[in-house]
Amino acid sequence: MDMTKPIPLTQPWTEAFWEGTKHRKLLIQHCRDCNSNIFYPRKFCPECWSENLDWIQASGKGTVHSFSTAYDMVEPRFMEDLPYTLAYVDLDEGIRMATRIVDCEPEEIEIGKRVEVTFHKLNDDFYLPYFKLI
């Protein structure tokens, strides 16, 4: 049984995002033509189909939209992490991303609480953007 943690299955146009996390930067794709902030990154802007895309650095701060703390029935490769909290976080820049809330007791996490990004090393190429309570 493969017990290694899965790495993100990237596309050429998402590699800058992951390169940013290696340098502790949370990057958001931005459309220069229609001014949209885009998550998750696309080959073309999903709003206007422009290819005039750029990256902005997020503040790294956001709000918990929802969460669920896992205690059982996850893949064997994630069992050693239990309990862990998966969350949807609304970044101040107006996008929502899936993440984990870390460095706190699960009971402390509530919808609406403020969080900030922290980077978790998966391997030399990938750092996952996790969040912790402010």
């Binding site: 993100p8 596309q11 669920s68 896992a70 992490d81 991303m97 899936a98 993440t99 998966l122 990938f126």
Partner: peptide, 14 residues
Amino acid sequence: DMQWEYPFGSTYNL
């Protein structure tokens, strides 16, 4: 999503 959700430990139940 295999890039934006699965690596964080997502499951159907979650």
